[in-house]
Amino acid sequence: MNVPETPQTPAAPPPADERPAAVPAPQGWQLHGWFSRLWDAARLHTPAYAGLAGRQDAFFQGFLIVLLVSLLAGAPGFVGDVMAALQRPSADETAERSIALREMLGAAGPWMARLGLSTAAWTAAVDEVADAFDMGLQVSQEIDQLPTRLPRPVGRILEAFGGWLSAPFSVARLPLAVASLGVWLGYGVWVMLAARLLGGRGSLSGFFGATALYAVPHALDLLRWLPFIGGLIGVIAYIWGVIVYIKATQASHDLSFERALIAVLAPLALAVLIIAGLFSMLSGIVWLRS
């Protein structure tokens, strides 16, 4: 290897605030202990958060938690996609979709009349949209029957598998709405910054390790496919996850609950303010020009 072109900086100890929190790392986190700690965290037991934040491998633990919950929550969707992949939609199902669209658009007729659109104009618009939809369905069916180099079912299963594995890397429109690495890291960066500005003392690794616990309640997303109560379960998982996240921020940064709450909400509030500001500015420009 070449001689260095610049003198080397002597090895320095890590900065004090980068060291893990003073809480001793619990010994021997076997699998059953691991799950029981996750359960403790879901029940908001403070030692579970401090224990995770204090581990040397806190970030890796956090990664594992988010990854596993994300894959678990996506499992029913994956199974459903595989089942759908193995069955081609029948001609009857296609016709049903077309009829359903026409009925849905037709039902909007009275609303359109109230907006001043004549019945004839709306009927023409519905026909145009429905015809385009029918053509799309027809094209999709024909493409589905084209030959491929790999057998069709294999390709479809690969597609479902790929989609399932992609979910942990996705981001969400609403912060903390799903268990995914994109959400965990993307929102966490800003919360970490806010917590530090509010006097937090936690390490980067400890903070991300502890906040990954927000994913635990999202294991309930496994049941989101259930009719009627699926949506409600999703809302419960979201609120529960946010509470866990605030608790984790509090524990990993040694903050008061109020400060932790501000740190968690501040990035969202700032984003809303910026969007509202930009919107007002654009509206102002449009108004001035008109």
């Binding site: 690969l158 597609e159 790929g162 992609s166 890397f169």
Partner: peptide
């Protein structure tokens, strides 16, 4: 694995590691 799409997570992860590296 075909059809796998690595979303925004990698960019944020990289940002965090860049902070660690610069520090």
């Amino acid at each position: 694995i075909p059809y796998v799409a690595i979303g925004g997570a990698v960019g944020f992860w990289q940002l965090i590691l860049r902070y660690k590296a610069v520090r």
